[in-house]
Write a protein that binds this DNA or RNA. Structure first.
Lengths: 113, 113
DNA sequence: CAAATACATCGACGGCTGTCAATGCTTAGT
DNA sequence: ACTAAGCATTGACAGCCGTCGATGTATTTG
């Protein structure tokens, strides 16, 4: 509810996501929204997201174990979630630390409200 | 006369959708949730859903125009949304009438709250 | 500097998915 | 009964996606 119709087409995460229920979606809005939902449309990514949400910050090396996937696969999924703006990563030393972006999740939630 | 038969697909689900943010998701919960998000991970389905939400009931024949897709494709997407429990269809005469399932959307919304 | 660690990228493979033409099924109208 | 309309299903094709081994890059450690 902070930001509303800025209608920026850019991939830059800004005033995201027109509402699905308010009025018929334009093709571009629908495409953008679908991209975000697609980020959540994978079991591994959902579990990854829940693991990151469980703590304030999580290292990629911590994820490889619980998710039972190879390192490239973990990297692939973190990138997918980051591209969607749902998590952000910060590299400190050798480690990559991830944390969720609550606003982004809220925006997605608003899209189906 | 005007026999009404519900088409609601059995979404074998109790109180759907564990929360992503509350605690680490189990594999089965994640798989189930991912299936629901996947239903929203397509531009055509999102626009279809918004069209159905715009009115109380919408006939399939009404959708073919605005979505600019073939009849089999429309049928494919309505089935996908119905399988996810997001819409329900009722056949009256020759026409298939669809409406959204607000509770289902709410459940999905709660999953990322 | 050299070795080791954490992560990203690349290339390839298999499976899934959106799309449409063709076909079948059910219902309405004549 | 015949015809037309609305929708579902099938089969086929192209494109996308998840996965992993191999390799590359950056950073720490000895």
């Amino acid at each position: 509810m902070a930001k509303r119709q800025a209608v920026a087409v850019g991939v830059t995460d800004d005033a995201c996501c027109a509402s699905v229920l308010a009025a018929p979606l334009s093709e571009s809005d629908a495409t953008e929204l679908a991209r975000l939902f697609a980020a959540l449309a994978d079991p591994v990514r959902l579990r990854l997201l829940s693991l990151v949400a469980a703590t304030d910050e999580v290292c990629s090396c911590t994820l490889e174990g619980p998710l039972a996937k190879s390192q490239p696969t973990i990297s692939h999924h973190t990138k997918a979630l980051a591209d969607a703006g749902l998590i952000v990563g910060e590299k400190r030393g050798r480690w990559m630390w991830w944390r969720v972006v609550p606003d982004r999740l809220a925006a997605l939630r608003d899209a189906i409200s």
